[in-house]
Amino acid sequence: MSFPFFKPSRPKTPQEVTKAIKDSLMALDIKTISEVKSLEKAMEEVEKNFGAMRCMLSGDGEIEPNVDQVLQLALEISKEDVVSLLVHKLPDLGWEARKDLVHCWSILLKQQIDSKYCCVEYIENHMELLDFLVACYDNKEIALHCGNMLRECIKFPSLAQYMLNSGSFVLFFKFVELPTFDVASDAFSTFKDLLTKHGTLVSEYLTAHYDEFFDMYEKLLTSSNYVTRRQSLKLLSDFLLEPPNSNIMKRYILEVRFLKIMMTLLKDSSKNIQISAFHIFKVFVANPNKPREIKIILAKNHEKLVDLLRNLSVRGSEDEEFEEEKELIIKEIELVSRLQILKC
């Protein structure tokens, strides 16, 4: 029998909600988790409190959230170290609680008090939380939740910068090739955001880690996994051909080994990959200051290349532009192949 009036009333203020969340998360300790009955009860408590947090942050479908309460809640949660708890306890949570957390996370991060993002600031002082989230890609159960939370974090330049330079960044090269598609593609999506959202930061990072980065990237471009090849190639043109990375691009197109990768991808059995490869290959060819080694490769292979390019076409509205570019590139390759100096 239940007596509703004996139950503790639902936490109402942001302070109460924060305290309730903190207490219920702390209760998820090893002793509790190892016992089925007590775990069940503790989880129920967490779920109830997360429900209250979600309701306060985004309303309940009928009532709109109260802006002041949302701000207060974000402030309390960062002040009371609950941000850390939320991240560290994520693997122990149930299905609905995790989803609630992902939903609330993005709202919390965006809260600004006196032009300061309180939760982001908290993470800046506890950067290891980001590494924790990255490592979660290895846990299929929570990979997508952590991926979502991570992408929310790296919208903020300071957090993205930490991620790029953190030791866990290299893990992405592994995660994007995981056999499970939803996890691998989620990791790729985060990887892509890291390399495209903050142009200047990325350019600084690539300049400092040029060799290391492109050595690892080469493995993605030559992967036996179709999706890895296709996505990494597309991403390469997304960041390499962006203005802030022009110096990186200029360096990249001087290297014979990268030209060779593009030539291999031009021959890929997938049409999508061929076309994406063309858009990078053309920059190697169109470069007015091609090094001698690049010219030699183009000259040696000019017949095959011209054949390949002639057979390459796209459908739809880009057609005309593509054909025009193709003709220019073919002309350039033929020109290079007739250069006398390369023949000795």
């Binding site: 299905w95 989803k99 997508l144 598609f181 939803d182 989620d186 996994n225």
Partner: peptide
């Protein structure tokens, strides 16, 4: 492949007896 990713993610995240759920997906 963004739209494909979204579809699989949505299918993996729903958990209801009246919805078709993706058990797993791979290439």
């Amino acid at each position: 492949l963004e739209s494909v990713r979204r579809e699989t993610q949505t299918m993996a995240w729903v958990d209801h007896p009246n919805l078709v759920r993706a058990y797993c997906s791979f290439v």
